[in-house]
Amino acid sequence: MTFVLLTRAALRPHEIVDTVRHPSAGAVVTFEGVVRDHHEGRAVTRLEYEAYDSMARAEMARIADEVETSMVGVRVACGHRIGTLEVGEVAVVCAASAPHREEAFSACRRLIDELKHRVPIWKREHGPDGASWVGWVDARCGHR
């Protein structure tokens, strides 16, 4: 049973990481995605995350299942926060355990890469120049 979390509350990484620990897992790898103060040369003051909640949870679970099914002995978990986050706050946590470090690193990497590509979560970047949806190229030139 894979642990997947989508929440407005502050993430507590250890709660997510603890779900992948078990006696035959000799390696536990954690990735935290943290709101940073810049993006593509612009200052960022905060990020606002929006999700298609039900599908986001379903897609996170599908990704976790795919990783666990394709890598023997691997267990993964992930959590994503939505709402308004300040610089330094944790937006996403991915954890993977495996008998040895190589598979654990690889599973954690695959989990965050797939999550960023497939899970329906969007972020609006706020900075001194205003706000814009990240990845939406028309956002700055349309409807002004």
């Binding site: 995350y49 994503h80 944790v90 990240v134 990845g135």
Partner: peptide
């Protein structure tokens, strides 16, 4: 659902 480019993670 129409899914514009997603932006999960930080």
């Amino acid at each position: 659902a129409l899914i514009p480019p997603v932006g999960g993670g930080a």
